[in-house]
Design a protein around this nucleic acid. Sequence first.
DNA 1: TAGATTGTTAATCGATTAACAATC
DNA 2: TAGATTGTTAATCGATTAACAATC
Lengths: 217, 217
Amino acid sequence: MSKSTVPTSVIRRLPRYYRFLGELENQGALRISSRELSERMGSTASQIRQDFNCFGCFGQQGYGYNIKELREKIGNILGVNAISPMILLGAGNLGKAIATHIDFEKRGCRLIGIFDSNPDVQGRIIGELEVKSTDLLEEFCKTEKPIAAVLCIPKTETAAAAAQLISYGIRAFWNFSHYDLKFEHSDIIVESVHLGDSLMTLAFGLHKITGESDSGR
Amino acid sequence: MSKSTVPTSVIRRLPRYYRFLGELENQGALRISSRELSERMGSTASQIRQDFNCFGCFGQQGYGYNIKELREKIGNILGVNAISPMILLGAGNLGKAIATHIDFEKRGCRLIGIFDSNPDVQGRIIGELEVKSTDLLEEFCKTEKPIAAVLCIPKTETAAAAAQLISYGIRAFWNFSHYDLKFEHSDIIVESVHLGDSLMTLAFGLHKITGESDSGR
DNA sequence: TAGATTGTTAATCGATTAACAATC
DNA sequence: TAGATTGTTAATCGATTAACAATC
């Protein structure tokens, strides 16, 4: 029975809590206080307690938090056990890397199909999946009912592909294309990873270090 | 002569402005008002004017902003012309994808070396670079003086590798490992891309859609 | 019980939005 | 000039931090 709406800022921190708690559990730790966790994670004890309280009372006064229990609860909130079937579009370098590098199962997802419009890559095996033609998408979605799609396709194709996928029942996108997906009046979920923007942010920092010479005044 | 300190929230929006302005320029548009840009980008005109004013006065009352000029100015702030030499560690699936998929040059960076500790991948060509042994790192850094490093290495190796690289003169990291790099008392720049966390955030949204059945009560 | 640490309210801080005078 | 739109200040909103009573 979660509080009405949990702020996105809190939700974005949950996977990180989950990771840190996992490590602590592996190290054999049983309990942790918000203060100690805050020191390890570089945040404040106050924020940690506030965050957890969005979902109910996980701790015990005078004791702290039970690591195993807390981790499980956060896992349940994130839905790591409610596996969602996903497909991936675009078996280029990036698509291949995502498909092989990410442990979908650990994160509440399962990759059940990979598609590419390029006949040259169709038929190749990535992980345990054979790359299929995008012509088979509609039929596949009808029978296998994936709920989300990873988009590793060029910017120019993204809008059309997303629209098509929605008509096939896809409700969420993990978007790696440089196109800014937006669906104003619908409940489609979009999680975008703009690698180019991320690198530019880094470049800005570098520029500040190095470029004390230029500066157009 | 930029204002004392620009908030990170603003800096993170700059690459996106840069992208949208690039598209407008390609479409042949000459000027744009903060209102029109806000509608295209899904933000507010107020925010756009505030953001730009962190760096000085880019527009003209009654007219709006000159697209070409504005884009150039943002590009200069981001440092897209002040090329920083970078190296990449870890030529696995992800490292290979980053090296080939990202246009570093467009974003103020140049990839000048790829390194991997695994002899099996050493010697392979990725893009235009040959994967080198990590044994050659120190010597390479001495002569080529890269300033930043992309980390596509396993979590367990990240802390040690980062410390080593800093001793070789590296000042910034584009971190794809699942390890949370932190350098409390130094001016090292870290831009982390936690793909796993990103997927989990998506999974949370999916869980909310699908999992109306369970919910611990 | 006394000490520790939570849950929760209140205070602060920063970021976003609104408003409007300045000005092209 | 009149209309449009910025630059900038003020108001609002949300998120973070501090404080402390509740309680294990």
